[in-house]
């Protein structure tokens, strides 16, 4: 039985493609974008998240695991030795401790996402495979997408594209749409986040050529790529994707960094408002591209 290692299954997901969707967030990513709003999906291992505002100080976690301590009233996890076994999470009554990362069978995912089939049909929605990088688990994703296609549930792949095209080919026959993140159009940019520009652009071209509607998603990040959007327009003009979505940087994921006990490099960077991107929207349109702000 095929399994996937996932972070979360999000139902009534309204920002991850057309209509009402369920998004399956795969765990593990081969890029490490410092602005990432889903940092709990980056590691390929499980993570324990701790939200202090929910903690009632009941102390159950301490009884289960010596890595939990309360120092002058504040809950502390020794993350250096934590194996994310999840025992503490099971005991936590308030939801302060959560686990990101569980193995789940494709059948189990299918069962859960099919609960909302009526909503997908009513809204032209479906299921989105996201993450993390879903194509790092291409076999499992393919099995999931194939079953969903058989059930007439449209599947959208949301990928950062830094994988061999063979991984794409596994899921490609079952896709109704692809969201393809392009974070940079120069090598230096991808060097910072650990990607390979030529591989990514090559994959993008192949996806566009495959006939699956492919939307390029550009997270517009201050000090990283926000000043290079004109270059994006030039590059994408030739590739001619179905649409380009400019996604203004936001900090809504900052709480997750705190919960993971890690630092957020973008903690003090102001969010971009959609209005700030209006000028770029015009620029992309001049290059003959269909473009939205926010998707």
């Amino acid at each position: 039985m095929k399994e996937l290692f996932i972070s979360n299954i999000q139902r009534f997901s309204v920002g991850d493609g057309p209509g009402i969707r369920t998004t399956v967030f795969m765990k593990g990513c081969n890029l490490h974008c410092p602005w990432c709003h889903n940092p709990e999906t980056i590691s390929a291992k499980a993570d324990v998240l701790f939200t202090s505002s929910r903690c009632t100080g009941c102390g159950r976690c301490i009884t289960a695991c010596p890595n939990h301590t309360v120092i002058s009233g504040a809950h502390h996890i020794d993350r250096g030795v934590c194996s994310a076994c999840g025992k503490c999470v099971q005991l936590c009554p308030s939801g302060a401790l959560e686990l990101s990362g569980r193995s789940i069978s494709v059948d189990q995912i299918v069962k859960e996402v099919l609960e909302d089939k009526e909503f997908y049909q009513a809204s032209d929605g479906g299921v989105t495979l996201s993450g993390g990088e879903p194509l790092l688990q291409a076999d499992g994703c393919a099995a999931l997408a194939q079953t969903l296609q058989q059930q007439n549930v449209p599947v959208l792949l949301d990928t950062a594209g830094c994988v061999p095209f063979s991984a794409f080919q596994k899921v490609l026959p079952y896709l109704s749409m692809c969201y393809f993140d392009v974070k940079s159009v120069n090598e230096q940019g991808y060097r910072i986040i650990g990607g390979n520009l030529s591989l990514i652009l090559d994959n993008l071209k192949k996806m566009v050529a495959s006939g699956v509607p492919t939307v390029v998603r550009i997270p517009v990040i201050p000090h990283f790529n926000a000043h290079q959007l004109a270059d994006f327009a030039t590059v994408l003009q030739d590739i001619s994707p179905t649409r380009v979505d400019l996604l203004p940087f936001h900090r809504m994921g900052s709480g997750k960094y705190t919960a993971l006990g890690s630092d957020y490099a973008y903690a003090n960077t102001p969010s971009l408002s959609p209005e700030e991107l209006l000028g770029y929207q015009t620029l992309f349109m001049k290059h003959g591209l269909t473009v939205t702000i926010g998707g």
Partner: peptide, 22 residues
């Protein structure tokens, strides 16, 4: 924010339609 975009309102409308259909 669910009400400001046509597309999101349409999703909400679908949700309501399913609720009422059921």
């Amino acid at each position: 924010s669910m009400f400001t975009h046509d597309e999101k309102r349409a999703k909400l409308a679908s949700l309501i339609r399913v609720y009422f259909k059921n």
